[in-house]
Amino acid sequence: MNARVVSVQVGVSRPLTVGGRRVLSAIGKTPVQGAVPVGPLGLDGDEQADPSVHGGLSKAVYAYPVEHLPDWQRWRREAGVCLFDDALPFGFVGENLSTEGLLEGEVWIGDQWALGDLLLRVTAPREPCYKFNAVTGLRDAGRRMVEGRCCGWYLSVVRPGTVQAGAAITVQPGPRAMSIAEAFLAKRFKHMR
């Protein structure tokens, strides 16, 4: 398995208009160049507007597979919300790390990722929220994320270090009791009951 970080993004909290009201959000992430320091609470220069759902020690870093971006582009095109057919930018779903080579069914809670001097641990799937729907331009983005099993995942910082685009991801297997895909579906099913 050749997994790697394709791009690294950070963002700050800014007002976002959702359904006619303004809320604070840091979902807008933009790529940065070079090595970015990563501490216990995430990447330097990155913020989370609502630490009750994003951020903190167990959700310090959000990773998302670039393999899903063509699906989001197609869904947006079919819904008539994308004006151009350009590829979606890295950071489109609010991820810190745009990754390649690992999908939700191959990522396990408790696995550790070594990226040079940085060591991360996979902790949980990302769950969609109303801000995600607004940013994608799709009212049913959350449903599409569930049906496509394309949620991405959170990581905690085991050992601080730096990360940069092009970094190889060396997976150190954990207990392998539950994949991100299984955890995501279990959470979504629980919320639907």
Rank of each mutant, 00 (worst) to 15 (best):
V53S: 09
R159N: 00
L138F: 00
D86S: 13
A177P: 00
A134M: 04
G116D: 08
G39E: 13
Y62V: 03
R4T: 10
L24T: 11
W153H: 03
L41D: 10
R188E: 13
A183F: 07
W113C: 02
T17H: 04
G19Y: 10
L24S: 14
H54K: 06
G94F: 02
M145R: 06
A87I: 02
I180Q: 01
G91V: 05
G80W: 10
V157C: 06
T30W: 10
V18Y: 06
V122D: 04
L88T: 07
R14Q: 15
R149D: 04
E104D: 15
I27S: 01
A3P: 01
V163L: 07
L88E: 05
V5C: 05
V12F: 00
C151F: 13
A87Q: 09
S58Q: 13
V23R: 10
D117R: 14
E67F: 08
K187E: 09
D50K: 11
A114K: 15
W108H: 05
V107C: 04
G116I: 07
C150A: 09
L115E: 00
L83Q: 14
G56L: 10
A87N: 07
E182R: 12
G34F: 03
A26W: 04
P70D: 00
V5M: 08
R14S: 11
A167P: 00
A124Q: 14
L24W: 10
R22Q: 15
G142N: 08
V61N: 02
V18L: 11
P175K: 10
H68P: 05
A3C: 08
L69R: 10
V66Q: 11
A49Y: 00
Y154I: 01
F84Y: 13
V135Q: 13
I169V: 15
R121Y: 05
P65H: 06
I169W: 05
W75I: 02
A87F: 05
L119D: 04
Q172I: 14
I169S: 00
A186H: 10
I109F: 02
A63Q: 09
N96E: 00
A134K: 11
V135G: 00
N96W: 04
E100I: 05
P173T: 09
A87Y: 03
V61A: 03
D46Q: 04
L69V: 06
R74F: 05
W108S: 02
L97I: 07
L24A: 12
P37S: 11
V5R: 10
V135D: 00
D140Q: 05
A114P: 00
W113F: 14
E127V: 12
G45W: 02
